[in-house]
C-alpha cells in the first residue's frame, strides 16, 4: 500500500510538471536600428512563446511578415530583400535556461537563456540574460539583446549602409498563461 501511494504520488507529480508550461500567442518582439541618418523600428505582437519551468526549456516562434514598420515600403523591403520571408517565413528560438527559479513566484528572477536562433536560413548559438516573474498565475518574461544582421547572412547594400545600424537592438516581452 505504501508503495502504491509513493508511485501514485510520482505519477501525479509528472502530471503536475506538465502544468508548469506557460504559453502565449501574443508575445512582443521589437527591433530597433538607430543611426544619425534614420531610426527604424519594427514590432511584432503575434509572437508565439512557451516556457516550461519544470524542464527549464523555452521556445519562441514568430512570422517575419508579422513585423510592422512605420513605412510600408520599408516593411516590403525587409520581407523581400533582407529576410526573404517568402523562403524563410519564421524566426525561431529554442533553448534552455539556468538560474534560481525557486523564488520565481515572489519576485523577478534573472535567468540565463541559451539556445539556437534560426533566422534567414541560418542557425546560430545564442545566449542572453533575461528576467522572469510570476504574478497571479501569469508569467512575464523580458529580455534585451543585440543581433548583427551579417551573422544571419543578411546583406545590407552600401547605398543604405549608413541608415541601418551595425547592431540591431532587440526587445522581447512575453506575458504567458499556464497551459490548461
Amino acid at each position: 500500500m505504501k508503495k502504491w501511494i509513493l508511485v501514485h504520488c510520482l505519477f501525479v507529480n509528472v502530471l503536475n510538471a506538465g502544468a508548469q508550461l506557460y504559453v502565449t500567442k501574443t508575445g512582443f518582439t521589437g527591433f530597433y536600428s538607430k543611426t544619425p541618418m534614420e531610426d527604424i523600428k519594427a514590432e511584432n505582437n503575434q509572437v508565439y512563446a512557451a516556457v516550461d519551468l519544470s524542464k527549464r526549456t523555452i521556445a519562441f516562434s514568430m512570422l517575419l511578415k508579422g513585423f510592422l514598420f512605420r513605412k510600408e515600403l520599408m516593411q516590403e523591403h525587409f520581407n523581400e530583400n533582407y529576410v526573404e520571408s517568402d523562403q524563410y517565413p519564421r524566426a525561431t528560438f529554442s533553448g534552455t535556461f539556468s538560474g534560481n527559479i525557486d523564488r520565481v513566484g515572489q519576485q523577478a528572477v534573472v535567468i540565463e537563456v541559451t539556445g539556437k536562433i534560426s533566422l534567414h536560413g541560418v542557425i546560430k548559438e545564442f545566449s542572453t540574460p533575461a528576467t522572469i516573474e510570476i504574478h497571479n498565475g501569469t508569467l512575464t518574461g523580458k529580455s534585451n539583446f543585440q543581433l548583427i544582421p551579417r551573422d544571419f547572412n543578411i546583406s545590407i547594400p552600401s547605398l543604405v549602409r549608413d541608415k541601418i545600424a551595425r547592431q540591431i537592438d532587440v526587445v522581447i516581452n512575453i506575458t504567458c498563461k499556464p497551459l490548461k
Partner: peptide, 20 residues
Amino acid sequence: VSVSLRAQDTDLLKRLNDSM
C-alpha cells in the same frame, strides 16, 4: 518519467510551430 525526460526543447518549438 521517461517520456518527459526525452521531451527536449525542440519539441516545445515544434508545438509552437504546429499551433501557429
